[in-house]
C-alpha cells in the first residue's frame, strides 16, 4: 500500500535539490531523506540552524557542505535558541532597512536526542516566545551519532547500547515521550507528525508550517538502518509500517485542532513492523503484548482528539 496519490505524482514534488549528493549519511538513511524533502518544500529562501547530531556531522564535514541554503551549527542542545537569534536578527535588520524586506523561513533541525532530551528547554523557550520559525525534529529513536544510545524518544522494548536486552532486561523500559503534545501545550499555531514514507504529506506539512505566523513544530519519523539493525533497503517500508501499525500515527494540530492525516481502516499487525528489526528481536510475546496495548491506547487517544474536533 502506498499513499492515495496518483502514480505519476512523484514528479509533482518540487524538483530542486538543495541537500546535495555526496553527504556522508549511512546507506538508506531516513533522516537524510527527510532533509531532502524539507528543502524541496521550502526552497532556497531558507536559513537552517542545525543541532549537533547525525545530520550535522554527515552534511558539514570540512571542507565540503551538503547544504544549498545558509546554515549554521553552534552546539547540541540549542538549535531552537540559535534559530531564535537568527529570526530576531533578520527581523530587526529588515525593520531597520539594513537588508531587503524579504522574510526567509528559519528552520531549526535536531534529532530526537537533541529535541526530546537535551534540547527540550531551548525548544520550549523558543515556542513560548513565539518566534516565527519551524522546528523540525527528525526522530530515529536513539542517539545514533554517538553509537545508538537510548533517548526519551526510544520506544518501549527497543534494545539500544544503553538499554540493552539481557536476562533481566527487555530493552527500553520507558515509553516514548509525546513530543507533539508538548508542542500543542505551548498553544502554537501548528504541530504535525510526519513520515519519510509519506513525502507528499510531509512536504505539505512543511509548507503549512512555513506559512503560519509564529512557531511550528514538525516531528518526522525517519528510520535508521544502522541503529535499528535493519537492511538499508527497508527504511521507507518500515517508516510506512510504523504508520500502518499505529506505532507512529500521522496527524496535524492546527490551532489546537487535531486532524488525522492518514486514515487507517484497520491497524496492520504489529509483528509486521517489529520482526525485521534487530532492535526488537529479543522481545517475548508477553512484552510485545504490553507494547501493543500501549501503542493502541496512544493511537486511540489521538483518534479521539481528532474525532472530538469533528463533532
Amino acid at each position: 500500500m502506498i499513499e492515495p496519490f496518483n502514480v505519476y505524482a512523484a514528479r509533482l514534488l518540487p524538483s530542486q535539490e538543495l541537500f546535495a549528493q555526496g553527504h556522508r549519511a549511512c546507506q538508506g538513511c531516513g533522516p537524510a531523506l527527510a532533509l531532502r524533502y524539507l528543502l524541496k518544500a521550502l526552497g532556497p529562501e531558507t536559513i537552517v540552524a542545525n543541532a549537533t547530531g547525525c545530520m550535522e556531522i554527515i552534511s558539514s564535514s570540512w571542507p565540503e557542505t551538503a547544504w544549498g541554503v545558509p546554515w549554521i551549527h553552534v552546539a547540541f542542545e540549542n538549535a531552537a535558541a540559535v534559530a531564535s537569534g537568527v529570526e530576531a536578527g533578520s527581523k530587526a535588520l529588515r525593520r531597520k532597512g539594513r537588508i531587503p524586506d524579504k522574510k526567509p523561513t528559519v528552520v531549526a533541525i535536531a534529532g530526537d536526542g537533541g529535541t526530546f532530551d537535551i534540547g527540550l528547554q531551548a525548544l520550549s523557550g523558543a515556542l513560548e516566545r513565539g518566534h516565527d520559525f519551524i522546528y523540525l525534529c527528525y526522530d530515529n529513536e536513539a542517539y545514533m551519532n554517538t553509537g545508538i544510545q537510548r533517548s526519551s524518544g526510544t520506544p518501549f522494548g527497543a534494545a539500544t547500547t544503553t538499554s540493552p536486552a539481557g536476562s533481566k532486561s527487555f530493552g527500553q523500559k520507558t515509553w516514548k515521550k509525546d513530543l507533539a503534545a508538548i508542542g500543542v501545550a505551548h498553544h502554537i499555531p501548528y504541530v504535525a507528525t510526519a513520515s519519510i514514507a509519506y513525502p507528499f504529506d510531509f512536504v505539505e506539512k512543511v509548507k503549512k508550517a512555513a506559512a503560519v505566523e509564529g512557531p511550528a513544530l514538525i516531528h518526522v519519523f525517519a528510520p535508521c538502518p544502522t541503529g535499528w539493525r535493519t537492511p538499508s533497503n527497508l527504511t521507507v517500508r518500515l517508516a510506512r509500517l510504523a504508520v500502518q501499525t499505529g506505532m507512529f500515527p500521522l496527524y496535524e494540530v492546527e490551532n489546537g485542532k487535531y486532524h488525522m492525516s492518514v486514515d487507517l481502516p484497520f491497524l496492520k499487525p504489529l509483528d509486521d513492523y517489529l520482526k525485521p528489526q534487530g532492535r526488537y528481536r529479543h522481545l517475548t510475546k508477553d512484552v510485545i503484548a504490553v507494547l501493543k496495548k500501549g501503542i493502541d491506547q496512544r493511537y486511540n487517544e489521538i483518534l479521539e482528539k481528532c474525532e472530538a474536533n469533528h463533532e
Partner: peptide, 18 residues
C-alpha cells in the same frame, strides 16, 4: 570562522565508492 563558502560542495565527495 572556517565557514564553507561553496554551497553543495559535498558533491566533490563521491560516495559511489561505498
Amino acid at each position: 570562522g572556517l565557514a564553507i563558502l561553496e554551497p553543495m560542495s559535498a558533491r566533490n565527495n563521491l560516495t559511489g565508492s561505498w
